[in-house]
Design a protein around this nucleic acid. Structure first.
Lengths: 351, 351
DNA sequence: CTGAAAGCGCTTACAG
DNA sequence: CTGAAAGCGCTTACAG
């Protein structure tokens, strides 16, 4: 048993061929005779040889690594995203170099590090893109695709859910169900998801002649949603419908309403989220939400990235994948029937 | 503005020094005069130069990449783990090459790929280690640390929570509270976490002279816990206490008990988990659980790995970090007072 | 403090 | 089908 790395030279010696031929055997098998190929394979197997990917990348001037910048892996929406990227990229022979943005820092800090590794392309999730960073990227000539984010002017490729359509749809259904007092719970105001979902929701409310909604922003976390909802729902003329920019905030809002303020959801307040994270489907929540089609979005992002890696001169593409409303039990989406009791809390609660 | 990669030669030309000196400026600044250093920095800045990490790794025969194999990023315990690894490794100038094990495959499939990238070390979470893989690793001479997993014989380094101690503690407290009929809900029987937690729990029950617990296994998921609990709690002589091998299963079990079977937790059944994932603290669950100290475990794993990278001849270390019982509301841990009503369901539920 | 030269482990024209 | 040679972009003795 050999300790340490084996090189193609050692395989060549054992197989009685040149190092060049060994290299060929691992790249275009067709150009090597069957007999030689067999000898090389045997030698490689015996020595435990695998081509050094670093050397391969260096000489061919292209690596198989894709850099992924994760903004917020702690938001339960992202594990599925990362999982999909990792799996799908692996199956096409690419690999993931993972970066996470340090708290307080922005993507600019990690970008040079990615470029040092000569990644073939970069996926950026959940982060705002400074114009300085956009320039750095352009300068390096490394293809980039934003995931679940867009940037002003569409100068960078991106793949997102159709946020505006999804949020508008929610607003319309809530309006048609007779809701008149609304609240919006958002995250960081400088993220495109926040901006787009909020804008579309507010716009649709206006179209229905509804007074301006109450708004609260905070960390895009369970606690952020919880706190915002508690404040918002403690006010005298509290909203009857809350739209949360993300599911994780919606779950916090829902718990604040039910557990902290003893309100019934959806009889006292309707709560709608965005994402469709696993917990949204749990019977303790049954959250009505707009589902982001993770698989389709990841497929789209990979396709865009590969196209740009193949031909860096292609124009950036901005892809929008429609979301789907998942109706569960956290929102009243039909008009209240006059004369019929609203039913509610106790119906839904066991024992 | 330059498009494409800049090399140290171009920086050297612009700064009027040799390529060797440019290299030195980026490695041991001390050995370059201040004036030269300044010129080189300026030239590098102007050209947008960063050392090619691939070339650097190749020539120095060591990369700064750490391979991480994630078994189950969809289990909410792992995002925090991955986040901690990524952040901490980044701050010491190391980077994460992320692999996920394809469904149905085992770690062996991805290991050669990691080794091809010449990773300095490997972290493996949530997977069983075949003896064949252990050999592959030894052969490559790449340091490996198992995270939250151990392997028979301690031939590979590992960092884990003190599973047995944690599980035994839970069993003892439940026994002392007077529970007599127990259920255990586990995941894959071939994972060390399952084996260790289960064994310690059962062992402590025996010590208290308690009849054998009912057991169920399934996927280590919310649904797995839900289904197992539903079956287990529908039986005639149902357990009064359920120990779940992981929080995600415990949440499923809790919802099955409450939402599906209309049982009160903890008055009808006590449910205890293991991990302390974020959702365990949410007011809809208030899960009593054994907390795995993620930060300490990750720190430990990195320390072990770095030591082995520095000196591959050191013996494997097996580190156990104690877990802490987090008492919340899902388990009755005190004896029932005779003559005092158990109170329960309606007390805990908002109006 | 600085530079010329060798070499990490590969791929890829080029020639046979 | 096969091999000798050049070279990817660096680091590191070695010499001055």
């Amino acid at each position: 048993m050999k300790i340490g790395k084996v090189t193609s030279h050692e395989v060549a010696r054992l197989a009685g061929v040149s190092q060049t031929t060994v290299s060929r055997a691992f790249n275009r098998e067709g150009s090597v005779s069957d007999a030689t190929l067999k000898r090389i394979r045997a030698a490689a197997e015996k020595l435990g040889y695998w081509p050094n990917e670093l050397a391969r990348s260096l000489i061919s001037r292209k690596s198989n690594m894709i850099g992924i910048v994760m903004g917020d892996i702690l938001n339960p929406f992202y594990p599925a995203v990362l999982h999909a990227f990792t799996q799908k990229l692996q199956t096409i022979g690419r690999h993931v170099l993972l970066f996470s943005v340090p708290a307080g820092a922005d993507v600019d800090a990690v970008l040079p590090q990615m470029l040092q590794y000569q990644v073939a392309g970069v996926v950026i999730t959940s982060a705002t893109l400074s114009s300085r960073m956009a320039r750095t990227i352009a300068r390096a000539g490394t293809p980039v695709v934003l995931f679940n984010r867009t940037v002003y002017g569409n100068s960078v490729s991106s793949v997102c859910c159709a946020n505006e359509q999804g949020a508008q749809n929610v607003a319309r259904l809530l309006c048609e169900a007779g809701h008149r007092r609304f609240g919006i719970i958002g995250g960081r105001a400088d993220t495109s998801t926040h901006v787009e979902r909020r804008r579309a929701f507010v716009g649709e409310l206006e179209r229905h002649g509804i007074p301006e909604p109450v708004e609260a922003s905070g960390a895009n976390t369970y606690g952020g949603g919880f706190d915002a909802a508690r404040r918002m729902l403690s006010a005298p003329d509290r909203p009857t419908a809350l739209f949360c920019i993300s599911d994780i905030m919606a779950l916090g809002a829902l718990d604040a309403a039910r557990r902290e303020l003893s309100l019934s959801v959806p009889d006292d307040v309707s709560i709608v989220g965005f994402d469709d994270i696993p917990a949204a489907a749990w019977p303790s929540y049954e959250l009505t939400t707009v589902q982001q089609p993770v698989d389709a979005m990841v497929d789209g992002a990979i396709a865009v990235l590969l196209r740009q890696i193949e031909d860096p001169s292609v124009a950036p593409s901005v892809v929008r994948v429609p979301g789907r409303l998942i109706v569960r039990a956290s929102a009243r989406l039909t008009p209240v029937q006059p004369g019929v009791a609203t039913g509610g809390a106790q119906d839904r609660r066991p024992g």
